[in-house]
Amino acid sequence: MAVEGKTIDALSQFELSPVGGVFGWAVSFSQSNLFMVIAVVLTFWLMKATADRGAMVPGRLQALGESAYEFVAGMVRDQVGDEGKKYFPFVFSIFMFVLFGNLLGMLPYAFTYTSHIMVTLTLAVVVWVAVTVIALKRHGMHFFSYFFPEGAPVWLAPIIIPVEVISYLSRMVSLSVRLFANMVAGHVMLKVFATFVVLLGGLGAIGPFVAAMPLAVNVALVGFEFLVAFLQAYVFAILTSIYLHDAVHLH
C-alpha cells in the first residue's frame, strides 16, 4: 500500500472508504466518521467516569478527566472572563474533538480525521458561525462597530473596514488550514520515512543498517507528532476562546 511500483505513496492514507459495506456506502459513513464516533465515545466515557467516581480525592482516571475540564475551563475563564462560562461546553467539545482526532491518528491503522481539510474547515465554520451569532445576539447591530475601531480617523474607513472584514472572514481559513496542514505534514512525513525504512531495508546486507537512520527519524517524529497533537488542539481551543472574547466584549 505504501510502496507501489517503487514510488512513495504517502497520500493514500488519507483516502476515505465506507464502513460497514453497502450500508456505510449508502449513508456515506466513512472510516473518518467512525473515528469521530470513537473520539466522542472516548470523551464521553472519560468525563462520565470522572463524574461517576466523583471522589473527594480523585484517582488517576478522575484526575485525568478533571484536569482536562479545568484546563479548558481555565482557558475560557482567562480569555473570555466569567461571561464565557456558558460557552465552556462548546470550547471543551472543540478541544476534545480535535485532541482525540489527533491522538487517535497516532495509533497504528487508525485514521486521522483532523487531516481532512473538510473536517477542519467544518469545525472552523462552526466556530465562526457560533462566534458571529453570539456577537450579534449580545450586541445587535452594534456588533458591526467591531470592523471600525473607535477613535480611528474617518477617512481611513475605506481601508480599515475591508481589512477588518477580510481578517474576520479569514479566521475560518487560518483556523482550519493550520490544523489540517500540521496533521497532513506530520502524517506524510511519518509515511515517507516509514517507506524509506522499507525501501532501504531491502538493499541486501547493508540494508538493515542504512534503514536504521529513517527509523530513528520516525521515532523522533512520533514524539514530535504527539506534541503537535496536543499543541494543535490547544491552539484551536484557545483561538476559539479568543474569538469568543471578541464576540462577548467587542475588542
Binding site: S17, S28, F29, S30, N33, M36, H116, L123
Partner: peptide, 15 residues
C-alpha cells in the same frame, strides 16, 4: 467526492 460530503454531514451530527 461522495464520501467527503458525507463525512461533513456525519461530522456535524457527531459533533
Amino acid at each position: 467526492g461522495r464520501l467527503l460530503v458525507g463525512q461533513v454531514v456525519w461530522q456535524l451530527i457527531i459533533f
